[in-house]
Design a protein around this nucleic acid. Structure first.
Length: 468
RNA sequence: GGCGACGUGGCGAAGUGGCCUAACGCGGGGGUCUGCAAAACCCUUAUUCAUCGGUUCGACUCCGAUCGUCGCCUCCA
């Protein structure tokens, strides 16, 4: 069984064949750091995270690059409104982005390049495009890509350039472009705007060019996978292909993968419509980050995901089911021969998980396989057919798969000393049948976020996320 | 106007020619276990896959039409 992904450009579902055997190079369009990202943005970042985690699970080496766009119109506007530099504003929201990403358990990309750190590379790319006749300079010092020079333009988005609604939807000519559909590579200097002096003159980078320059700088002229939200297909990624391939003469990306929108109230979550929710706000209101992560990644990446009030409680319950099993396996102790049926259960779980994710990252089916395994393990726990060693092996298997989802808490969670004392006191109370006292301690621990459950193996406890 | 995606139980969602009287998660109902709980397990909750036609021995799955929802064509994850 090979790992297959659907490519937006061709529509084909093809086996992943990295250019370098065993090493996958991935570029993900990251946030523009002009404000806090919302959970719709994070759906797309977490989809890339899932992809990276799975490929690593599969034993592949992955180099993952995610850019931070730290210069654009919105950043300039925001900085001006606050009377600070664009760099200061960008730094603030870059930090905020990383904090949100961390709280969601997102894998840190190997490289998080910033546009303003790649000005020379961007200028070089523009210069090359001019040399090759694909770009031109206008009177104000801006540079544009000449769409007419690139016959494949529109292929990714399946758009006919001649049918584009020029004048109505396409921005009217403001810089003296040759063709109103040509897009900016470089914006000439303007009063009050940051500007960099380069070999192509002063100014600042356009949006699309930075991703071409940074992906080439960190992954080479051709790499394996490029991810982003569907809303980036056009014009952003279309433009990236045109300018990159026109400059290098090489195929830019092996597989384009695009994540469908997160919806709220039936429509795309977007700042401009105001139907947004933010990671830090949700967590501050008591939502479990792991439940939020689960809610954002457990639907196939190419399917729209509607976020509602019920999303979080349902996801939280699913995550807790996993937590509860892991806690039960850790507490389980039975001196008996190994359960002969267990290996088949664990194999079936793993096989179902892998074949589902191999199939274009079918996360729902993968979760189905895992939860079938969960039920089977719970049965064996109830029936006490497993040995202590079986329980440890089962837990290890489950954690290996969960490393891809990133839902469960770390195994070595320690209990605070005062809570540990309460737990001990409760065990003593129960031993002497002081029910009132033991119930009081259970309530108190629950209030501290610790669920205590009594079993044949004695008390077992686990941390429970606040409801949300 | 052009292009594209989608419509499966109370909710989310997998399946995509026969094993589907339809996985899995959440929720509901009943039961077992428990000092009481919780967790867990068992039973139960769609003879049906937007609607209508067609192809086929056979369709949720293929084709067509209709209705509905969403997205892109402008900044956007």
């Amino acid at each position: 069984m090979t790992t297959r992904f659907q490519d937006t450009l061709t529509g084909d579902v093809r086996p992943l064949e990295p250019r370098e055997t065993g090493h996958v190079r991935i570029y993900s369009c990251g946030p523009t750091v002009y404000g806090p990202a919302h959970i719709g943005n994070f759906r797309s970042f977490l989809f890339a995270d899932l992809l990276v985690r799975y490929l690593r699970y599969r034993g592949l080496r992955v180099t993952w690059v995610m850019n931070l766009t730290d210069i654009d119109d919105k950043i300039i506007r925001g900085a001006a409104a606050e009377g600070i530099t664009t760099g200061a504003l960008a730094d603030r929201y870059a930090e905020r982005f990383l904090a949100d990403a961390d709280s969601l358990g997102m894998t840190r990309p190997d490289v998080l390049p910033r546009a303003t750190d790649h000005i020379p590379q961007i200028a070089d790319l523009v210069a090359t495009l001019v040399e090759k006749g694909h770009a031109y300079r206008t009177d104000d010092g801006s540079y544009f890509f000449r769409i007419a020079s690139w016959s494949a333009y529109g292929q990714l988005a399946r758009l006919d350039p001649d049918a584009m609604r020029v004048g109505e939807r396409v921005e009217a000519d403001e810089y003296g472009k040759d063709d109103v559909r040509d897009f900016a590579l470089w914006k000439g200097p303007k009063p009050g705007e940051p500007s960099w002096d380069t070999r192509i003159g002063p100014g600042r980078p356009g949006w699309h060019i930075e991703c071409s320059a940074m992906s080439m700088a960190h992954l080479g002229p051709s790499f394996d996978i490029h991810t982003g939200g569907v809303d980036l297909v056009f014009p952003h990624h279309e433009d990236e292909i045109a300018q990159s391939e026109a400059a290098t003469g090489l195929p830019f990306v092996g597989t384009w993968m695009h994540c469908a929108h997160l919806r709220m109230g039936g429509e795309k979550m977007a700042k401009r419509t105001g139907n947004i929710a933010r990671v830090a706000d949700l967590i501050a209101s008591g939502v479990s980050p792991r439940a939020l992560r689960c809610a954002l990644i457990s639907v196939h990446y190419r399917a729209p995901l509607n976020y509602t009030d019920e999303s979080l409680p349902a996801a939280a319950a699913a995550v807790e089911r996993l937590d509860a099993l892991l806690a039960a396996l850790a507490a389980y102790s039975e001196d008996r021969p190994d359960d002969a049926g267990l290996p088949a259960v664990l194999d079936a779980m793993r096989d179902g998980f892998e074949s589902a994710l191999d199939d274009d990252l079918n996360v729902s089916a993968a979760l189905g396989a895992v939860f079938e395994g969960v039920r089977e393990l719970n049965r064996r726990l109830d029936a006490r057919t497993m040995s202590t060693g079986d329980a440890a092996r089962a837990a290890a298997s489950l954690r290996a798969l969960d490393a891809v989802f990133g839902f469960t808490a770390p195994a070595d969670d320690e209990l605070a000393p005062d809570l540990a004392l309460m737990l001990e006191a409760r065990a003593t109370a129960r031993a002497t049948k002081q029910w009132a006292e033991s119930d009081r301690l259970r309530d108190e621990l629950a209030a501290a976020g610790i669920a205590v459950e009594d079993t044949r193996d004695g008390q077992r406890w686990r941390k429970v996320a606040p409801s949300g």
